[in-house]
Amino acid sequence: MAQKIKMIMAKPGLDGHDRGAKLLARVCAEAGMEVVYTGLRQTPEMIVAAAEQEDADVVGLSSLSGVHNYFFPKVVELMKQKGLEDVLLVGGGIIPEEDYDFLKKSGMNAIFGPGTPTGAIVDFIKENVRKR
């Protein structure tokens, strides 16, 4: 049986706006991925534990409350500590372009701002995901 892309879709922090996260989860599942949705109020530790236990190929982080610069690098750091460097890390939500550089430098593979077509996100994941 072919390998399927396994994705974790997580909302770090206390932000409750999950329209985008759920929408993307659905779109990715329709594109043939197996998407684990973690729900709201995830700490970086919880997200990374989920990524490890699920052997995720991709971790998607969604944030609309302006806490991306705090949470995303924390997730990257913990992923490294667990030896999960080959997992694709993508972020989205209300993230101003001026923060993209910082987030990418800190180890995020891609940031998708407001208005990004979901198809572009699916394509990026399929093109850049690791082989197990």
């Binding site: 922090g13 206390l14 932000d15 409750g16 109020r41 700490t43 409350s65 302006g66 806490v67 705090y70 949470f71």
Partner: peptide, 22 residues
């Protein structure tokens, strides 16, 4: 801010990064 809305004080572990944000 979200910690108050979710019923946590500013120094609760889940409040990290959120204090005074939104």
């Amino acid at each position: 801010h979200l910690p108050t809305q979710a019923g946590y004080d500013s120094d609760h572990p889940l409040s990290m990064g959120e204090v005074g944000k939104v």
